[in-house]
Design a protein around this nucleic acid. Structure first.
Lengths: 234, 234, 234, 234
DNA sequence: GATGAATGAGAATTCATTCAT
DNA sequence: GATGAATGAATTCTCATTCAT
């Protein structure tokens, strides 16, 4: 349908005024994506909103796709940075604590600008057809894997790459799908609990992994919990 | 952008000839979606492939969206039926066995026509904007919930609706994402194992839920594992 | 720069109203080419002048080039037919007489619509890049060759294909160039004389080939002419 | 369409550095014309290839047309000089010898850079619309006329201006058309022979003008030929 | 019911040209 | 003199949709 044009920005602006223009264009694109969706983000519309001429848009972006790509890039770079920082702050936390923090962060990030998130995720497959590899996804997975690595022995899955893939995508998807079809879940602490239970139950199926607040002596607690649950379910 | 037209087929054709035409149109649309993607599925193209005139397409479908919607409807109806039948065949199976069967079925279904699945999933959000509620999703969730209900006492989550939501979307998403970015996973039994572990670990976190074939001496081994892990975590 | 699109008309119109539209489009294109030149013949402009929508233009012609091609085709078909008819009327004429008639006809044809002729000739090379072979040119040359064939023994050149090529292009070019840079020549009988002299001198260098009116007994006349000319040149 | 801007270079650069820039621009234009054709020769592209900014291009050339014009000018000036030199070397040669040399030279010149020649010839008409008179053509014709002048008495045509026009354009056109549609002819000595025959037959129709090497006993053979032909024609 | 010709708004993209720095 | 960012009119072409036959 479309000959594959390179999606990378066309030229790196050298003069500062060019940088301003370039930023304005990306920002305008994001705005339109949020307000009116992908189809409304025509290059002319973007130019108009950015307060520049179409020509300027094409000076920096070789196509409409490149434009969306740039927004995506920016958004995902943020996500990556956030996650990196989040993880940096995690030293000393238990796996359970760490997971809860990270899941909460992912939810918060997406809830921050749900519309943009939504539109970008919807366009991802389209972009992937054009870009063979998705360096962002690769780095994200690596991050999760590196997070799991030190816990390798406490954790059931042997294939940490697959585990990272599963965990990352589970959290992403469940956040995303809640966002679009059960927004009420996003504000319910129970949902976070369940996500944590899901991931922890996957990583450490023999532990009781859901009760909050975290107990001190895991062995005893587990036994207790198990008993009490049987009681409840009776 | 677009005035919201009703997406239901325009007329239920009563004559069998008309039914044939209508089917041909849906089939043609599906074909094109699979072969060339959403953008290529122009109404004229569909008409040509279906061997009818554009006029006839508009006789049965009020818009392009209605067309895609019909394909989606058909595809999802199949999925629903499959799941219903799958569940019907489940009587007597343990939760673990049942889950494995169902997960395998979902994977198989999607792998059957990955391209169509992909395109339709990509278009889902677009459709959702037009249809506020997604009756298919509702029924799917109900099905999963009804499946969980009899196991309510063996299972940790108390909010079975949320559990159904989480399980259903987890399996769907992980199948989908594997399809598009890790097709190799689809053929690896280990991936099915992990999905089962994920869901079972969520539903029954205190049980050992992954080893295959299912261990007979689970209690002992579980205890042992638990001990060694506690040791490590100390 | 441009991926090579097929230049043949897109669809043969089946309904008569379509034929009307199609003709109107070609006629409008020709008009614009004549009045404003190639660059002005934008598809929108053509549509406007033809009194149809751009969409209709693209229904029948796959690109702007196809449009010009159609005009060319029509114009050249006329030229071919004219030449065929002209030759049919030639039975019994001597080579000299025949040539004079044909040359006069070519000149007349081009003078008939000089502007159109000019524009089309200018665009020929562009079209040739798109169409590998030029069937019209082939047929024209064959026509000239077939005209020479019966005279093969009266005529000096042995390679009749090359002779046809040379004669045809000489007459064409000299007509064309006169048209664009010496329009005064077109109305001067002397110019026709010279063209005849050129071609005849090429075909039959030993004959005296220019004097008008045609003499009866060629042998005597030739001798006489030769003598008188020497006298003049003295 | 376009307001008629003067086509002469904007400023004659006096500083040598500027001259270098100016040359670089013309050379770049020529290069692009050769490699990618007229449409690809955008001013920005030219600037990039020339290693200057668009602004600099417009410092020296008032428009894109002026740019192409400059290339044309340069190319044609070469042609003119070549012809002048060629003629200067001709003293003592017979008309026949002279013609053969000149024709060969024209062919060689065009074959030297066929692509450039082609592009420029295609653009000639466009340029002519802007420049009413073509001083180059005028000078070329004068040159040919001056060449004919001394032979005025050996030569049939009396209107030497028209003769120059015809000869010049015949040779030019037949070279050009061979270049673009019968490149094989360019390397065949027979083609040169035929061109010579054409021109000589035009200038001196009573002489035998084609046999090569030039016959010494032309009178006898000519007579013989004439006889046999008359016989055939009888 | 069916056809397919016609529509036309609107999309992406280019490129000659200007002008502030 | 030189730069290159910015311009924006203009162009090609598509496609969902309508409606006369």
């Amino acid at each position: 349908m479309k000959s594959s044009t390179p999606l990378a920005p066309r030229r790196k602006p050298r003069q500062s005024r060019a940088q301003v223009t370039c930023d304005a264009i990306i920002t305008a694109t994001a705005q339109i994506l949020v307000k009116d969706g992908y189809d409304a983000a025509s290059t002319n519309h973007v130019a108009r909103v950015a307060g520049v001429s179409v020509g300027s848009v094409y000076q920096y972006f070789s196509s409409k796709e490149a434009l969306v790509m740039a927004v995506m890039e920016r958004y995902r770079a943020e996500g990556l940075t956030d996650l990196e920082e989040g993880m940096a702050r995690l030293s000393g936390a238990t796996l359970r604590e760490a997971l809860r923090l990270l899941i909460r962060q992912v939810l918060a990030k997406k809830a921050e600008n749900p519309r943009l998130h939504q539109v970008l995720v919807e366009q991802l497959p389209r972009m992937r057809q054009l870009q063979q590899v998705d360096p962002y996804a690769v780095r994200m997975l690596r991050l999760v894997r590196d997070f799991l690595q030190p816990h390798a022995r406490e954790v059931r899955p042997k294939d940490l790459d697959m585990a990272a893939f599963i965990i990352f995508n589970t959290v992403e998807s469940l956040t995303h799908v809640a966002l679009s079809s059960r927004p009420d879940y996003l504000t319910r602490e129970a949902y976070v609990d369940e996500l944590c239970a899901l991931v922890l139950g996957y990583l450490q199926p023999t532990r009781e992994s859901v009760r909050r607040p975290p107990a001190r002596t895991s062995r005893t607690r587990t036994a207790a919990t198990r008993k009490s649950r049987s009681a409840r379910n009776r």
